[in-house]
Design a protein around this nucleic acid. Structure first.
Lengths: 153, 153
DNA sequence: ACTTCTATATATAACCA
DNA sequence: TTGGTTATATATAGAAG
């Protein structure tokens, strides 16, 4: 690359690091664009500067590539959609509760109540925390949907 | 780069294109990793081959970078995270209910029940349908989280 | 298809403005 | 900060196994 050998270690000097980040980011985006035009491959690159600024590049667009990625990652052909991907026991529990409530379409207003009643006393707090996490995810997901068509930089 | 000049145009020969894609993808991922280690920058790269296979690289991980990206894209500094990005009235209602339940951390097992009781008779069905939609999103989201530590490649 | 192996094109670290 | 210039390090197209 340059006048000295590559030195894979972190650059300490803030100013130099900023310059290097900018140059390498440009190079990375250019490479990504070439991969797209030469190989007709969809590609997206996202990078955050230390300052916290987001830079993104996508061909044909960042959101389209990310959507494709989520679909590919979420539904690998050989795994036919295991019903719940919950990662903790409490989250699994919440998933089960939602399942039950959703299934009870005929049902009284007490569907939620019945599900909650089934919980042991100690589970309540765990489930609430899990619920909180899950709600954050829902909000994130919805923000994502809202910004489906937008592109940074 | 190589023995001839670069030719930005699409490579027609399938076999050559495949080889070029693999080589350039590796190069791109390597560059991304260097950007991370040298500049301490979070970075993600996603590429799809023409065959439709997904390849992803992320430091510190693909999902963490994507989450950061969505937050940055969805919450520009002047919009301080509006609590709900729900798109329908029923989904907004579900969001409010979740909020209430989550807030009642002290609370009895009846938090859900109380929230459901507040609904008008006609709202119940709408809320259930919204819940169903939201649950789908949760499942998708959770599948996504499952792939948090994995790097396709 | 997948590896090495070059010859050469590009990218870029250090300078300098 | 930003934008060149240049000397070198890397990346990679094509070839050959």
């Amino acid at each position: 690359m340059a006048r000295r050998s590559v030195e894979i270690k972190k650059i300490e000097d803030r100013s130099k690091r900023q310059v290097t980040f900018t140059k390498r980011r440009q190079g990375l985006f250019k490479k990504a664009g070439e991969l797209h035009s030469k190989c007709n491959a969809d590609v997206a690159v996202i990078a955050f500067s230390l300052a916290g600024n987001a830079y993104a590049f996508g061909d044909p667009s960042v959101p389209s590539v990310l959507d494709r990625y989520y679909k590919a990652a979420a539904a690998p052909p050989e795994n036919p959609a295991p019903v719940a991907g919950e990662s903790t026991a409490a989250e699994r529990k919440v998933g089960e509760m939602l399942e039950k409530v959703v299934e009870t379409r005929d049902g009284g207003q007490r569907a939620w109540d019945r599900e909650v009643d089934k919980l042991g006393f100690g589970e309540i707090e765990e489930v609430k925390i899990a619920m909180e996490e899950m709600k954050k995810r829902i909000v994130l997901q919805q923000r994502r949907i809202l910004f489906e068509s937008s592109n940074l930089q």
